[in-house]
Design a protein around this nucleic acid. Structure first.
Lengths: 142, 142
DNA sequence: TTCAATGCAAAGAATTTGCATACAT
DNA sequence: ATGTATGCAAATTCTTTGCATTGAA
């Protein structure tokens, strides 16, 4: 097993769960790839250790999400993309025409998040947020 | 065929496409159901006219989207939900814990939409927007 | 008459489940 | 030793595609 992750081991221990090579590999892959689909993560993990099943990728991503170590967002109709929680937090704008994905700073929705919190008691998951619409280039073309 | 829809017939004519009973039925179902998945729309349509295939539901929803008569949003990891465009426009907040979906007025993101437009040239698709996070009740429980 | 639209069946992508085995504790 | 975590295969869910037939214009 590669360099064991303190945060991971700690979060697992707290819940009586076990540290495994696969869990470390998946977390490493998410951190390295950024915006990766389960399949891309699988490919990355396979490069480090052969034989890790795609099922384990799915199960581990679910687990890491529950542990708060990774988050995911839906940038298309297809597979979700995962990234490490808290590392370079940002949100996305996806152009429905050219499908370009633009990263936006979390401050973009700070005012919205505050309003939701105060007026509705809602705690917005900023890192999960994907904004859809049309980018300037595509609007000019239309 | 039930009461033919002027907007639908017009949009179809403009593109040299044909008016069919199925297209009217799907549009009617979307208007009636609100937040319906393709499968729910299929069930609703089946109640009015037997034998309409699920494939036709998918093809028709795509078409109606292109015509600008319906929009869709992703409120869960599963199937998208469709609703009639421009009718009672709103956006959604989905609690990741209790999965409750709350409708929010479009004004909630008016300031955000303006900022994206001015600073980035992005035209936000407000009706497609789904905000995820935790509702007040669930936060209190945690 | 002509070709778009539909129905049907089969294929396809993404994900989940059941169960025996392997391995962290 | 104990039971969690994994691998494997099969099942599920959601959606798309190919092709012959139907039907709107």
């Amino acid at each position: 097993m590669a360099k064991a992750d303190t945060a991971l081991v700690g979060a697992l221990r707290e819940r009586g769960l076990r540290m495994t090579a696969q869990r470390q590999l998946v977390l490493d892959a998410v951190r390295e790839l950024d915006h990766a689909t389960p399949e891309q993560i699988h490919a990355e993990v396979a490069g480090k250790a052969a034989g890790v099943n795609i099922t384990t990728i799915y199960r581990t991503l679910d687990l890491l999400s529950e542990l708060g170590l990774v988050t995911h967002t839906h940038l298309s109709h297809g597979a979700p993309t995962y990234h490490a929680a808290g590392v370079h937090p940002h949100l996305h704008f996806v152009c429905r025409d050219c499908e370009t994905v633009t990263e936006l700073p979390v401050e973009t929705v700070q005012e919205l998040a505050g309003k939701l919190r105060e007026e509705r008691g809602f705690d917005l998951d900023v890192e999960h947020l994907a904004l859809f619409g049309q980018c300037g280039d595509c609007r000019g073309r239309a």
